[in-house]
Nucleic acid binder design. Structure first.
Lengths: 237, 237
DNA sequence: CCGTTTTCTTGATCTGGATCAAGTCATCGG
DNA sequence: CCGATGACTTGATCCAGATCAAGAAAACGG
């Protein structure tokens, strides 16, 4: 786990993030100069809920599980993929993290001091606008997740998740699950045992599963069951 | 249902909202001059999910239920009380509403054109900062709600809700429920029948209920059961 | 390559909460 | 004041999904 200033070779990837793409060069450089990059092995806890938010985190490679615990129980809330940020809201409000984060695999994470983020927000209008847009996006994502949870059964959630993955994989009828099943279960708010059964229960709707490989024999049939709704399932709006 | 330009007597209330308190006078007046105020009877649908977001809404008096539907089911997502705004995220992103809204009682609602909000955001730094802060706050509220849903049983959710209400009522041991039980049930993600039984199930922990009046005989006992957690239950952080 | 560990599956059982069905109570317009 | 409508409660039943238990299949470290 080596900590070092950010190598300039990482700048372009970060610059492309829509959070940083619309700002002027100089404030961007200010942010980058104060930032660090660290390489983490799998399953390392990066932040713990309740801690104060000293850094905005950016996943450069690998992936990060955002999860929460209460009274001995634990649930996956979301996953951060490259290249994206996480815990922006805590950074902005200078408030404690509401979620913990751990690497799922070997990951490179950039750390930008929260103070710098707040300072540059005031100095650069493009950055300010991008932060607002990103926050609004995050908010809408959680609302969608909440609707998914409150309005659907676990089988319906799985069916819609598969449709999302299918679309994400380029509208082909075969693809691999993005993460291990026990995590998928937690994300969907169910147990691993039940996920196993849910896959079987989707068989009549043309879903075939082999390990982490999914084949959707009849997309129309699955859609008829899942009833996908852009106001819940479309991540872009 | 009368539509008219906003009377100046409403300005001070709105000005006090932290969304508008830190901005300069002139852009504030710009927003107000473009705004409308309407009086609505109870149970009127103000906005429908999926519609485009033409106005930022501000509850001046009364209260508003934010709810969502899918496949014939419906759930309450949140309640907007005076004086606060709702659907800020949709306004900012110029994206369709993710939730519908209906008045719970006779209500006065101010409508600020979304275009104006976006324009003034670019012109006034104080307003920009306030919007970011408000959005981050909203985001964190939903995350808390999601943790509540995924990590707790309905009985635990009710117990913690009562503790929140108790605190909100000024730390007294008797208070009235803020809304009718069928809505409370929906907010807590349960059925009215089950809410009824849940109140009874909390009796051993010192909860007594009479109509909408609640008496908490033993706060310590209830807390021992509910295990409130600031990272889920504290609305301010 | 093998033994260990972990994930995944499958079956049996249990339970929290939903649904269905009635009845009671409160509110309110006439 | 009455009748009607909708809210709330209570009991009986049902079901989705959790839990428990055990085996099968992968993943992994040496």
């Amino acid at each position: 786990m080596v900590r070092l200033g950010m190598p300039e070779s990482d700048y372009p990837d970060i610059r492309e993030l829509h959070l940083f793409s619309e700002m002027a060069d100089e404030p961007f450089m200010t942010l980058m100069r104060g930032a660090y990059v660290q390489n983490f092995p799998p399953r390392i806890e990066l932040i713990t809920e309740g801690d104060s938010s000293d850094f905005l985190h950016i996943v450069l490679s690998g992936s990060v599980d955002l999860f929460s615990s209460w009274n001995g129980r634990e649930t996956s809330m979301a996953t951060a993929w490259p290249v994206s940020t996480f815990i922006l809201a805590a950074t902005i409000k200078d408030a404690p993290y509401l979620m913990s984060a751990r690497t799922l695999e070997k990951s490179r994470i950039a750390l930008v001091p929260s103070q710098d983020v707040r300072a540059v927000f005031d100095a650069d209008q493009g950055f300010a606008r991008a932060i607002v847009s990103e926050l609004a996006q995050c908010y809408r994502s959680v609302i969608k997740a909440q609707k998914d949870l409150k309005l659907r059964s676990s089988l319906e959630r799985l069916a819609n998740h598969l449709l999302q993955q299918q679309k994400h994989s380029g509208d082909v009828n075969e693809f691999d699950l993005q993460f291990e099943k026990r995590r998928l279960a937690s994300v969907l708010g169910m147990t691993p045992e039940n996920l196993s059964r849910a896959f079987k229960a989707l068989h009549p709707y043309g879903v075939e599963i082999d390990g982490s490989h999914v084949r959707i024999a009849d997309l129309g049939e699955l859609k008829r069951f899942a009833k996908p709704d852009p106001l819940i399932d479309d991540p872009s709006t």
